[in-house]
């Protein structure tokens, strides 16, 4: 146990060290100003990160905005209301969703979602942040739902009995007892899902449009955009190892790694504190 934990810690540290080392020329040359600039033209030595950061932010936010309510609703439904086979059906289909490779989601998005968005919203193209967010929401739904269901089922019988004996109605029981009691687990699920949404590459790359442009206005979710992951996916093959372009892509990678590590640490901290109480 301890050895494997140590090994994974070493792997994470090595990975971070590699990313820092490889992106160092970039940080040294462009500094923190690169966060403000949206211009990314590798052949003109312009490597602004803003467009991709904003893109990643929006895609993840849309995904959470959809997946949290639906995931929670599915969890409540299957752990509190349905019984037996129906519960298993929902749980099983969620686990199935989680097992589908991301490139399959991407291709489905390409074939079904993009033409649908294009025709129903009268857009020039369905490639945009909304498409990426919608696709991501389906991909992170299982994480949120399964973790929430587990957390709900751990709410003790005595709590439920107490609530019932106080004559609390169903909605009061849900909002005052069940959800608050299960919240630490739900929160961990949301944070893990956020990590996945930020790190997802293949599916996003296929539908986001890969335009290195800050949306105008910045909340225009219907314009083709770029995320940190799709940029790395699109460009890593051509960038020569050791070049400034490569270094800049590694900087994108470092940023993603730091954010997702922070998120998963946060998720674990919450789970641990929840167990302690």
């Amino acid at each position: 146990m301890r050895a494997s934990a140590l090994i994974s810690l070493i792997v994470v540290m090595l990975m971070l060290w590699f990313l820092v080392q490889q992106s160092w020329p970039y940080w040294q040359h462009y500094g923190l100003g690169s966060f403000v600039s949206g211009d990314w033209y590798p052949y003109e030595s312009l490597f602004g990160l803003a467009a991709a950061i904003i893109g990643s932010f929006w895609a993840a936010l849309i995904a959470l905005a959809i997946a949290i309510p639906t995931g929670l609703a599915a969890a409540v439904m299957s752990s509190e209301i349905l019984s037996g086979p129906w519960r298993n059906l929902i749980r099983g289909s969620m686990e199935l969703l989680a097992g589908i490779p991301s490139v399959v989601y991407g291709l489905l998005g390409l074939w079904l979602l993009l033409p649908f968005l294009q025709s129903s919203l009268h857009l020039l193209t369905g490639h945009n942040l909304l498409a990426a967010g919608l696709l991501l929401s389906v991909m992170i739904l299982p994480t949120i739902m399964v973790m929430a269901q587990d957390a709900l089922s751990e709410v003790s019988a005595s709590q439920r009995d107490a609530a019932a004996s106080l004559g609390m109605g169903w909605s009061a029981r849900l909002w005052r007892i069940l959800l608050p009691q299960a919240w630490p687990g739900i929160r961990s699920g949301i944070l893990l899902a956020l990590g996945r949404a930020l790190g997802e590459t293949m599916a996003v790359m296929l539908v986001v449009g890969s335009m290195d442009r800050i949306p105008e206005p910045f909340y225009n979710l219907l314009s083709p955009a770029q995320t940190l992951t799709s940029r790395i996916g699109r460009e890593i093959g051509e960038s020569a190892f050791g070049s400034m372009h490569f270094s800049a892509l590694m900087a994108c990678g470092l940023l993603l790694a730091l954010v997702t590590i922070a998120i998963s640490l946060l998720a674990h901290m919450h789970t641990d504190s929840a167990r302690a109480t």
């Binding site: 052949y43 020039l124 490639h127 449009g209 890969s210 335009m211 083709p224 699109r234």
Partner: peptide, 10 residues
């Protein structure tokens, strides 16, 4: 490597 400001998608 010219920029294409009119591009809608890559």
């Amino acid at each position: 490597h010219a920029r294409a400001a009119g591009a809608s998608v890559i």
